[in-house]
Design a protein around this nucleic acid. Sequence first.
DNA 1: TTTTTATATTAGTCTTATCTAAAAATTGAT
DNA 2: ATCAATTTTTAGATAAGACTAATATAAAAA
Lengths: 270, 270
Amino acid sequence: MISIVVENYLKTILKTEDQSRKASTSNIARDLSVADATVTDMFQKLQKAGLLEYKPYYGATLTKQGRMIALKILRRHRLIELFLQKVLGYGWAEVHEEAEKLEHAVSELFVERLDQLLNFPVKDPHGEVIPDAQGFRATLEDICLAEAKPGEYTLRRVTSGDPEFLSYLEREGLVPSNRFSLVEKLPFQGPLKIMLKSSEAPRFIGLEAARKVYVTPTPPLAEGRRKAADHPPARGRRKAVGRRQLAEIERRDTLLSTRHEFARASQHPA
Amino acid sequence: MISIVVENYLKTILKTEDQSRKASTSNIARDLSVADATVTDMFQKLQKAGLLEYKPYYGATLTKQGRMIALKILRRHRLIELFLQKVLGYGWAEVHEEAEKLEHAVSELFVERLDQLLNFPVKDPHGEVIPDAQGFRATLEDICLAEAKPGEYTLRRVTSGDPEFLSYLEREGLVPSNRFSLVEKLPFQGPLKIMLKSSEAPRFIGLEAARKVYVTPTPPLAEGRRKAADHPPARGRRKAVGRRQLAEIERRDTLLSTRHEFARASQHPA
DNA sequence: TTTTTATATTAGTCTTATCTAAAAATTGAT
DNA sequence: ATCAATTTTTAGATAAGACTAATATAAAAA
């Protein structure tokens, strides 16, 4: 049986690989808030168990088996987060912590029932993709706000579970699906000046915060469609689109900004 | 922090007290499937922690503090069971196992949100009372089927989480709220002959099974109301009651068969 | 190439929860 | 009151995870 502790190691290694950081003992130790020696020990055990390959100074790589387990935890985590928000009315900032515990306690059946209840969702409340039951993940094509040029954007994803930070973003109106324009990036690692679609006052976001925020240009310049810039929407002229319609557009945009791809697990012979 | 293991000890002791069995090391060891020596050890630790009083050969008694914790777990367990059944569509027999794990993983907030979502329910899918957030419990006035005299009964509660057993009962139509008549008890510890309201064929239920089933006479002879036997319902004469109405009657009956009372915790100075 | 620095490992403890086997204590029966 | 049966406790181990302190190794810099 795989313990909660092992599940957390695997999950953390997967996340580290996703960020193309090295899954070294020291990195993982920092992420899990344990001593380096503890990770060395665990890496040796996990290698013996066939869940990862480990080369000192190079880092750990999940095996097919280890990756599958990690993806399952990730799926659980994200479905649970969405459930907490949609069904139990949790706030954006509250879902992560609770999911951290629940992800180790729920059965396969539970997860699949959640999936059904939530109507097979694609993303969690932070905009992260939910792996499917086979471990496949859609690939996001969003870009990091810290690297974006001035222009119009839709917020897609926030890579943090920290309640403080998330509450802050929420107060600033920076939640997934919200639109804003990036007016300019102030020099010398300065903050970003942004303008929400819904408000007049400009806001300033620190570079560190911007590193955790991912966006797509608005409207998305999807292949095979003419650039929307050539046909600016006749705003205020005809009747504004209804809520339902807006939701549908939003959904379509979201889907268009992703591309389905096999999870690495299936290409990675153990 | 209280570990999952400790939570399980406290819960098991509470259940044992409820059944007025002695919470001896050996009894608890059997219930938890651990060695006697393990329980001795744990009892000593829990006593030191102020969660129970323990006298060898006499048994353990929960302190106010220990009881409060146990009642919280019980509340979680039962709310989770109901949630699994009502919201995630789990079967009667499946809810217990999943709840056993989840009860140790959910936060206070989660539990209170469930309570709200389920509209502050009184009983779980097995007919067991759900303690309120303060640990108060309604007291059931049902009787054990194994001790019942021939007559008309409504099934109220089943004291088992065993999926096999519950599936069996379900197949026999013995689920909470169902009505049946106990025709006779066969001699020499023989089975009980019962007749479901909804079917012609008699069924035979072993005495062991009957010990886990609790019932109230149908219709309930609540104080301050005339016995319903004096006024047999004019069945088939006027229009049958609708579903909604039936549900309401059922609900009222259920409530009438209970009486609110302080949980022992509040009378028990540590 | 040698030194410095960063990273990783080993060795020895600790805690929690468990076990088995043997010893001790209590209850109940004769 | 004494013995047998039951119940409980002690003692000594084990396994999982984690720690600290000391050591070793690889990478980077001089």
